[in-house]
Amino acid sequence: MARPRIKDPEMRHGRHCVFLMHVHLVFLTKYQRGVFTKAVINDLRVVFASVCRDFEAELVEFDGEDDHVHLLVNYPPKVAVSALVNSLKGVSSRMIRQKNYPTIQRKLRGGALWSPSYFAGACGGAPIEIGRQYIAQQKTPH
């Protein structure tokens, strides 16, 4: 007998899987220079949402300060986080250069907007200890 489907609106369905995967990303500007204004943050939001759609992902939350941004992305299991990050940073950097924001051009010479490093943290779902307990309680066949 088939198990009933979980009716969780957050769950996403792929061809052969059901998933709910989120990653918290933090990108720093090159040299941690404070170059972002509200207008730049708003433009980045649009670009990041578009790149996420290209990856069949969803930008769930986004905001930032003058020298860094935070993204919460719901993504499918076929997407490598590193590939998503490379695209998010590359496309947004090109877009910002094309817009010719004066504060960014003055403070970040050489065209690089982002520091090469980033933070990525898996989040969402049950805490790890709950998952460990659940798996440990499974009844191994004899």
Results as ranks from 00 to 15, higher is better:
106 R>L: 09
82 S>M: 07
121 G>P: 03
132 R>G: 01
137 Q>P: 02
121 G>M: 15
92 S>P: 04
109 R>T: 13
95 M>Q: 08
132 R>D: 06
120 A>M: 06
95 M>Y: 15
110 G>C: 03
114 W>F: 01
133 Q>M: 13
127 P>A: 10
141 P>C: 06
79 V>Q: 06
81 V>E: 08
120 A>G: 05
109 R>F: 11
89 K>L: 00
115 S>D: 12
73 V>K: 06
109 R>L: 11
97 R>S: 10
123 C>G: 08
124 G>R: 11
97 R>Y: 09
86 N>M: 05
76 P>G: 03
93 S>P: 05
101 Y>A: 02
107 K>A: 04
121 G>K: 11
131 G>Q: 10
74 N>K: 09
129 E>T: 12
135 I>V: 15
100 N>Q: 15
106 R>A: 05
134 Y>S: 10
85 V>E: 10
129 E>Q: 11
99 K>M: 12
75 Y>G: 00
130 I>P: 00
133 Q>C: 06
137 Q>M: 12
111 G>D: 12
85 V>Q: 10
127 P>L: 09
117 S>T: 12
91 V>H: 03
131 G>Y: 07
101 Y>I: 01
115 S>C: 03
89 K>F: 02
122 A>S: 14
131 G>N: 08
111 G>L: 11
90 G>T: 09
110 G>M: 07
137 Q>D: 10
94 R>G: 01
78 K>F: 04
98 Q>D: 14
111 G>A: 08
105 Q>P: 00
77 P>S: 14
85 V>F: 10
109 R>G: 04
140 T>I: 15
94 R>H: 06
116 P>D: 11
138 Q>H: 08
96 I>K: 01
112 A>G: 03
90 G>I: 07
101 Y>S: 00
116 P>A: 03
141 P>Y: 13
77 P>H: 06
93 S>K: 05
77 P>A: 13
78 K>W: 10
123 C>N: 13
111 G>C: 07
119 F>S: 05
140 T>P: 01
120 A>Y: 13
88 L>P: 01
88 L>F: 04
95 M>C: 03
112 A>H: 13
73 V>L: 08
108 L>I: 03
105 Q>E: 10
120 A>I: 07
113 L>A: 00
141 P>L: 09
108 L>D: 05
117 S>K: 07
87 S>P: 05
92 S>M: 02
89 K>I: 01
